Amino acid sequence: MMENPTVGDPEHLSPADLVAAAVREFGERELVLRCVALLRSGSWVDDPDLLPAIANGQGSEVMAGRWGPPYWARVWAMRTFLYAWDPAAVPVVVAGLSDEAWRVRELAGKVAVKCEVGEAAAALLPVLADEIPRVRAAAARAVGTVGESEHAGPLRALLEDDESSVRVQAARALERLAKRLDRDIDHLGLP
């Protein structure tokens, strides 16, 4: 496990502090590329120092099979992109929107927002119908940030979602989409 130069107990650092320490240790681009490699392979075997650097003590525990399912490695790798970024991560963020683990799909949506991953727009549309409300809400936020006028229809459908948090995010996303595209909200998606 790498030495963490951040003040405080490394077992209780925030994700932002963990990634900041990892950036100091590896460099931002190198850290992102290592996370990209993990997301592509789904395995930490080739990079045993990565998870302990981005996931507190839990990374080592997952690697040893003592804590949580293995998909947590993908969760932590995707979460890293919220704090360290390089465009090389775009393909794995887009692919993460269809990951079998809902937490990865949710984080991929959050990364699409934070890093304005326009390439994710089309891949976000099926995620708007995800079975997990948190994933639908993240996808709605992302469509509002990177979508186009033609994506307004699927957002409007979410205004009737069973979950209030999804409805709220869909309404905000429509407002953001209209403002970003400089269009009247009522005419989004219409010829």
Score class of each variant (00 low, 15 high):
residue 9 D to C: 02
residue 18 L to A: 03
residue 189 G to T: 01
residue 4 N to G: 01
residue 102 W to G: 09
residue 69 P to Q: 11
residue 156 R to H: 13
residue 48 P to K: 06
residue 15 P to Y: 11
residue 167 R to Q: 12
residue 135 V to T: 09
residue 47 D to H: 06
residue 95 A to L: 07
residue 178 A to K: 08
residue 107 L to P: 06
residue 189 G to K: 02
residue 184 D to P: 13
residue 84 A to L: 00
residue 60 S to R: 15
residue 2 M to S: 10
residue 87 P to K: 00
residue 188 L to Y: 10
residue 102 W to F: 08
residue 26 F to T: 00
residue 110 K to V: 10
residue 105 R to L: 04
residue 23 V to E: 15
residue 97 L to K: 00
residue 23 V to W: 07
residue 168 V to S: 07
residue 58 Q to I: 14
residue 72 W to L: 10
residue 11 E to M: 09
residue 169 Q to K: 09
residue 27 G to Q: 04
residue 21 A to I: 04
residue 147 G to P: 00
residue 52 P to Q: 11
residue 105 R to T: 03
residue 62 V to M: 03
residue 180 R to L: 09
residue 156 R to I: 14
residue 117 V to K: 14
residue 105 R to N: 03
residue 101 A to E: 00
residue 75 V to A: 05
residue 14 S to P: 04
residue 143 V to Y: 10
residue 148 E to H: 12
residue 182 D to I: 05
residue 60 S to W: 03
residue 104 V to C: 04
residue 121 A to R: 14
residue 55 A to Y: 15
residue 88 A to M: 08
residue 118 G to M: 08
residue 174 L to Q: 07
residue 8 G to V: 09
residue 26 F to D: 02
residue 23 V to S: 15
residue 141 R to Y: 05
residue 30 E to D: 10
residue 14 S to Q: 06
residue 100 E to D: 15
residue 112 A to K: 04
residue 71 Y to W: 11
residue 150 E to K: 03
residue 156 R to G: 10
residue 115 C to E: 11
residue 72 W to I: 07
residue 13 L to Q: 08
residue 98 S to Y: 02
residue 26 F to I: 01
residue 20 A to Y: 00
residue 89 A to D: 06
residue 57 G to Y: 12
residue 171 A to Y: 15
residue 15 P to F: 13
residue 9 D to Y: 01
residue 183 R to Q: 15
residue 188 L to M: 06
residue 107 L to N: 05
residue 113 V to W: 01
residue 109 G to T: 04
residue 59 G to L: 05
residue 1 M to L: 15
residue 68 G to F: 06
residue 152 A to N: 02
residue 108 A to P: 13
residue 13 L to V: 05
residue 71 Y to L: 02
residue 51 L to I: 00
residue 87 P to N: 01
residue 16 A to F: 06
residue 106 E to K: 10
